[in-house]
Each structure stands twice: as C-alpha cells, then as structure tokens.
Amino acid sequence: MNRLKMAVVYVLCIVTIGILGFAFIEHLSWLDAIYVTVTTLSTVGYGDIVPVTVAGKIFTIFFIVSGVGTAGYMLVLILSIIVEGHIKDQFGRRTMLQKIAKLNHHVIVCGAGRVGEQVIEGLKNSAKPFVVIESDQEKANSLQSDDILTICGDAKLDKVLQTAGVKRAAILVSALSDDADNVYVTLSAKSQNQSIIIAARADEEEAESKLKQAGATMVISPSISGGRQILAAIEHPLAYDFLQNMFYNQKFDVDMAEIRVCEKSKLVGERLADFWAKEALNLTIAAIKRNNTFLSTSLETETIAARDILIVIGQPMSIRKLITLAET
C-alpha cells in the first residue's frame, strides 16, 4: 500500500509539472495545458495541439519518458494489488475453512450484534473453540481481522450451518435480532444435530415457547435478563459485584464451574467432605444436579454418584484438578 501511495504522489507531481510546463513554455491556456498533459500521459496524442518551440519539444521528450513510465508503473501496481488481494482472500478463506473442518465439540455463534458480540468476547477469554456466522460483510471482515473464525452468510441456511460444523458442534448460540430467525436457526440446527445444546435469544415473550418447541435448550431474553441484573445490583450490590468479577474478570482468582462426574471417576462413591479433605481442594460446592433435580442442602455428607453435575466455586487451579478427577 505504501508503494501505491508513492506512485500516486509521483503521478500527481508529473501531472502538475506537465500542466505548468506546457502553460508557461508553450504559452497555452490552463485548459489546453491540462488537455495536452492528459493526452500525453495516456499516450493518445491526438496531434491537434503540439509543442512548437524548441524548449517545448525538449520538455515534451522528458515529460513523455518520465510521465508515461510513472503512469504505467502505477497501473501495473494497482492491478498487482487487486490480483494479490484476491489471492490472499481466497487463500485466507480456504485456510479458515480448513481450521473449522478440524473443530469438534465447538461453539457456533449465530449473529455478531450487541448480544452476539458479548458472547464472542466471553468465548475469546475462554478455552472453548468457536465459530461465528455473521451476514454483514463488514462485521465479518472485522472479526476475521481479529483472527476469529468467521463465516459470512445466512445462519438460517443449512449449508452455512454445515460449513460451521453444526453436526460436530456441542453448543449453538442463536443471537439474531429477529425472533422468527432464531426459531428457524434452532429448527435447522436440531434437524442436523439432535444432541446439540442451543441457547437462543428471544425479544418477545411469546417467542420463548416457540423456541422451546423448536428445540432450544435454553431461551434468554436480553430485556428480562437486563431487568433482573438491575434489580440484583440494587438489592445486593456487593454480591452482584462479586459475581460479575467472578464471571467476567479474568484476573479474579475465583471461578465457577459445572463438572460432570463420569462413571469411572474416582469421585463415584466418595463423600464430598472426605474427598475434599483428602485431595486438599480449595472449593465450595454450591449444588449438585442429579436426575434433573438440584441438591443444595447437607452437600458435605452427600455421596457422589456417576453422572452427577457438581456446581463448584473456588480457585481455578482446584477447579482444573477436580475436572481431571471427575473425568478419570
């Protein structure tokens, strides 16, 4: 791009010199001087206005040699930039699609508007691989420039979801601005992957039931969630501030996690209090989800069962250790 800028500056300088030269040496009007300069640089040379003085002829010789060469160089440079940019775009798209094709158990975010943007920011700070589908070319280009795997297309189309790897994905976030579009995306995703978890946005209250019927695992209304957060911030400001830091501040040394206990895990059959002490886990257990029921009282005396989901709060290092123990 710097070469192109230099070439443009050179051409402008040559044009200015040509106009001034023909105007003062050949005593042409400004319009005729511009006319002769342009026809000379473009190598058209109609011949209706020609230099008649010796000084004018010498000036024209040097002007043709320097000016035509510079104009030609700029034209070649522009063509090379266009071709090079096209090749880069094609190569970059192919590389991106190859990366997406290698993803498994990833997250697909449909829509990079105000809601989707917040989801993307959170995923960037997590270890979860994700792909964004955005219909706006400018937004898609901006995301791609930030090294985010982004497909520019309509998320309602099956082929676009397939390109994003919907059949291999673990989670899909439908954050489009239109409720009907979110219903359509949910139906399309579920038809291709029955096990996928779908979190869908709903602006209208009546859209929630339709999204549930379409197969959405959870439906979030930005207006309702926003109202609840405002209420929580008013009634429990310190607790709200703590939770905000825990969820969104990466430097905060406390985190929350949902940990599923596999059937062969060392945790199965262990009492929580005994296991916590034995493994020196600096964690607080908030709840256990067992058979679609939340257990939240006398958890220390509970015996861990296979397929339990432990909801814990504590230091990230202890959480990572518990995840390893739950999986092995």
Rank of each mutant, 00 (worst) to 15 (best):
M6S: 09
F24R: 09
S29K: 00
I34Q: 05
V36C: 03
T39D: 13
L41M: 14
G45Q: 08
G47D: 01
V50S: 05
I61S: 02
I64T: 15
I64D: 11
I64G: 12
G69K: 08
G72P: 01
V76K: 15
V76H: 11
L77C: 12
I78S: 14
I81M: 10
I82H: 12
E84M: 13
H86P: 00
D89R: 14
T95N: 11
L103R: 10
H105T: 09
V109P: 08
C110R: 05
A112F: 04
A112G: 12
L123M: 12
N125Y: 10
S126N: 07
A127L: 08
F130R: 07
F130G: 08
F130N: 06
D136W: 04
E138Y: 14
Q144N: 12
D147A: 12
G153K: 02
A155D: 00
I171T: 01
A175G: 09
D179L: 03
V183E: 06
S188R: 14
S188N: 15
I198V: 15
A200Y: 08
A200V: 01
R201A: 07
D203F: 10
E206S: 10
S209N: 07
S225F: 13
R228P: 06
R228T: 10
I230R: 13
D241I: 10
F242T: 00
F242C: 05
K251C: 00
V254K: 13
I259E: 00
V261E: 01
V268Q: 02
G269R: 07
G269P: 01
L283R: 05
K289N: 06
T301I: 12
E302R: 04
I304V: 06
A306N: 02
R307I: 04
D308R: 01
I311L: 03
V312M: 02
L325G: 09
